[in-house]
Design a protein around this nucleic acid. Structure first.
Length: 524
RNA sequence: CCCCUCGUAGCUCAGUUGGUUAGAGCGCCUGAUUGUGGUUCAGGAAGUCACUAGUUCGACUCUAGUCGAGGGGACCA
């Protein structure tokens, strides 16, 4: 560290914990993912929408903060502006003197892209119809894709787990057709392959919540809360294994670190029933085999039978389009933790592994998720609007590509024009403009230490510039530019130790008028 | 929030049972080369050993607490 300097303002520049600065390399990768997936989404007919980062807290879901702080993982605060309080019918609430009641509403930063979608959709309906007519309304079909940052106040941060991260969603609102669910699986698969994941390096896992829900009903689980708790435990299957799932369903367990995890204390028969169900599907089977197994269970519950039929329909579509088990499998033990899923659920698991810094082989795990959520809009409007969609975790996927060395190579920097003389600055700018007009990314040196050619070269090298253009008084008089090929120089540096020879082989004088054409030709 | 491990130069890390002046590699800076990135060579700067208190003649080293990081767990719309 250099000498300690007193900070006169007393401010320490620092990044907020859990948030990230993203350099140009990571940005390159991130936008490659976004662009490739967006093209696929568009091809399926989804439209590009954006919504604001801030929403009214009550529109975002079940989280209604009571204090001016982050609540249950959602960043929330009071709007500094006073606004009218609205009644359920959209009219302004008034007090006894007919004055509009004003308040500072709670605002929240979005924690996913699905809730703002529900808000947008519901708002559109509310504008067109009075609330009392909504009951008879056939909800219109709306299909959009959207990407952007979402925010969660995560308590424990870890690799690949941030408080600001990007999602890449596509959704169908206003359809109960299971064909749309089959399509979601195909979109996810196509998108991942467009991004560059090889076939068989990932698998889309599909299940239907209705099957488990119905099965549990047969076992006597009627209560929604019990069902949620059971689902949450089953969701941990991958992580903790079947035996520990059984323990958590029953009396609880003590994990390897010695921490006690309390169980759900379910009835022993119920636990056996659930474990038996999951056990059936612990081995990889074909979709047909899974369907046969499900039918053989002879679950009486109608909801469960619905779910099985929906899976059958999805299988028919997927099979017709040659989406075989290499891409999409059925896994009845897949549940996903989220409460709002009502039917088909999907999750994409990366099958790739990597070796971490300590030499341990690790798996990447889930990179996409999705499912059918038929009650999300209902929570806002009171009318049932079926919807289904999926989402790619952009940051997770970017990390996967980095860890498995599939990230694109570092991009070339711009062509770099070195500085020699103040009088030549207009010429430098002229050259830069001509190169840019020819479609070449070009930069003129503006650094503070212009006197030092070494500094300029080091800067260009740092930026991974392919060419440096040197025009001093010698070149200016002759009407030429010395073009130095940094990339070639890098290659030759292994074989040449003499500086002069090195420069001679790597540099060329080019007439000013031919500069753009020459560089264009060299860059291919 | 719970458990474990760790905190020494910008980075990655050495540092003898507690002993006098805390080291290396990489990076950075200067020069050989005042018009040139690599390589080579010669030099140089840089650390309150996370912080606070305690034990001790003496603490980077031991103890406690605080803060921070990593790993595991709980949670995860």
């Amino acid at each position: 560290m250099s000498k300690k300097v007193e900070n006169k303002r007393g401010v320490v520049a620092r990044k907020v914990k859990g948030f990230r600065d993203i350099d140009s390399n990571l940005n390159q990768l991130k936008w490659k993912i976004i662009n490739a997936a967006s093209e696929v989404y568009k091809k399926y007919g989804f439209e590009h929408w954006d919504t604001p980062v801030l929403e009214y807290a009550d529109c975002l879901g079940k989280y209604l903060p009571d204090e001016d702080t982050v609540d249950k993982g959602v960043y929330s605060f009071k709007n500094p502006e006073l606004e009218p309080v609205l009644r359920a019918d959209g009219k302004e609430l008034r007090d006894d003197d007919a004055h509009v009641v004003m308040e500072n509403a709670f605002l929240s930063m979005r924690y996913d892209l699905t809730s703002p979608l529900a808000r947008r959709y519901a708002e559109g309906l509310l504008e067109k119809y009075q609330r009392h007519q909504l009951g008879q309304l056939k909800p219109p079909l709306f299909r959009r894709y959207q990407f952007g940052p979402v925010y969660r106040y995560e308590i424990k941060l870890g690799p690949g787990r941030f408080r600001e991260f990007w999602q890449l969603d596509f959704d169908n609102v206003g359809t109960n057709d299971v064909a749309a669910d089959a399509e979601v699986c195909m979109v996810l698969s196509d998108a991942l392959e467009a991004i560059g994941l090889p076939r068989k390096s990932y698998v889309v896992k599909v299940n239907n919540r209705k099957i488990l829900t119905g099965y549990l009903k047969d076992l006597g689980v009627e209560n929604d809360l019990d069902e949620q708790n059971i689902i949450r435990v089953i969701d941990k299957m991958d992580k903790i294994g079947l035996d520990n799932v059984a323990l958590e369903l029953a009396g609880g367990r003590t994990d390897s670190s010695g921490a006690a995890i309390k169980g759900l204390n379910l009835d022993a028969n119920l636990v056996i029933g659930i474990v038996d169900f999951i056990k059936n599907f612990s081995n990889q089977k074909t979709r047909q085999e899974v369907l046969a197994d499900l039918r053989n269970l002879e679950i009486k519950n109608e909801t469960a039978q619905d779910g099985i039929q929906e899976l059958e329909k999805m299988d028919k579509i997927l099979s017709t389009l040659d989406f075989d088990e290499e891409r999409v499998i059925f896994d009845p033990s897949l549940v996903r933790g989220l409460a709002y899923y009502t039917g088909p659920v999907y999750e994409v698991e990366s099958l790739q592994t990597y070796i971490d810094a300590k030499g341990v082989e690790r798996r990447i795990g889930s990179i996409c998720g999705g499912g059918r959520y038929d009650t999300l809009v209902e929570n806002l409007l009171g009318i049932k609007v079926p919807a289904t969609g999926g989402s790619i975790g952009v940051d997770r996927l970017a990390e996967l590509l980095m860890l498995t060395n599939q990230a694109p190579k570092r991009k070339d920097g711009p062509v770099f024009i070195a500085y020699f003389d103040e009088e030549l600055v207009p010429l430098y700018q002229r050259m830069a403009r001509d190169l840019r007009d020819a479609g070449i990314e070009t930069e003129v040196y503006y650094g503070m230490d212009k006197k030092k050619m070494k500094k300029q070269m080091a800067y260009a090298d740092d930026r991974n510039c392919p060419f440096v253009i040197l025009v001093g008084s010698n070149e200016a008089e002759k009407g030429v530019a010395t073009v130095k090929n940094l990339k070639l120089g890098k290659e030759l540096s292994n074989t040449i130790s003499d500086k002069k020879e090195w420069n001679e082989r790597v540099q060329k004088e080019i007439p000013m008028a031919e500069l753009a054409d020459y560089i264009k030709g060299e860059m291919g």
